Computed example of a mutant assay.
Amino acid sequence: MSDIKLFAQPDEVAWTLLDNGNRRRVIVYTDELMQVEFDFEEGAVGAMHSHPHVQASYVAEGRFEVTVDGKSAIIGKGGSFIVPSGAQHGVKALEKGRLVDTFTPHRSDFLDG
């Protein structure tokens, strides 16, 4: 494995402020898998995009309007959604919220800054 982080405590993982005002922090990762937490203010948008990684997302707090591959749903606390490789997807926070995303393989772009 080129790089690996097996354990994390919330107070030891720094947040990265994103251009859209949201923030994220990489929690744990191996070459094959990565867990990332995203924090959204009410009304914040995760713009439509795609990537080659498969993504599974868990709504830890709040409610989100989620669009994946042209289909939309409202997903609240405790709900989940999956994004297949290459699918266009994005979210809008209907209230302050937090997503915990898992990617396979890991997102090296998140580790590079």
Rank of each mutant, 00 (worst) to 15 (best):
V36R: 06
E41N: 12
G86D: 06
Y29D: 02
Y29N: 04
V54R: 12
E32L: 13
P105Q: 00
D69I: 03
L99A: 04
K71P: 02
D112N: 11
D11W: 13
K71A: 07
V59H: 09
K92M: 12
V66N: 10
G76V: 07
S80G: 10
E41G: 14
Y58S: 07
V91N: 03
K92Y: 14
P105A: 00
D19F: 12
G62Q: 11
R107H: 13
G62I: 11
E65T: 13
V100W: 03
F40Q: 04
E32A: 15
V26W: 01
L17V: 03
V100R: 04
E32N: 15
D19C: 01
L99G: 10
S2Q: 10
Q35G: 14
V66R: 01
E95F: 02
S72M: 08
N20T: 14
A14S: 06
E65I: 12
G76M: 04
A93H: 12
K96T: 15
D31C: 04
D109M: 01
K92F: 15
D69S: 12
R25F: 15
K71N: 05
D3E: 14
G76D: 12
R24N: 10
G79Q: 03
E32D: 14
P84M: 04
T104Y: 03
K5W: 00
S80M: 04
G97I: 12
T67V: 09
D112G: 02
K71Y: 01
K5S: 11
D39M: 04
T16K: 05
D101W: 01
D101K: 00
R23E: 07
F110A: 01
E65C: 14
I4K: 03
G78T: 11
I27P: 03
A8H: 12
S57K: 01
A8P: 15
A14L: 03
D101S: 03
R25H: 08
S80W: 00
R24G: 07
P10L: 08
F7K: 13
G70W: 00
S50T: 06
E12Q: 13
A60P: 11
Q9F: 15
D11T: 08
D101P: 02
G90P: 08
G62H: 09
G21H: 08
D109E: 04
H51N: 13
E61S: 09
R107E: 14
K96F: 02
S2W: 06
L94P: 08
T104M: 05
Q35Y: 02
T67K: 05
Y58E: 04
V54A: 09
K5L: 13
R107M: 14
H106G: 08
G78M: 10
H89A: 05
L6E: 12
N20H: 13
S2N: 14
K96Y: 07
G70N: 06
F64W: 02
E41Q: 15
V68T: 06
R63L: 03
M34N: 10
K77I: 13
A56W: 09
A93Q: 11
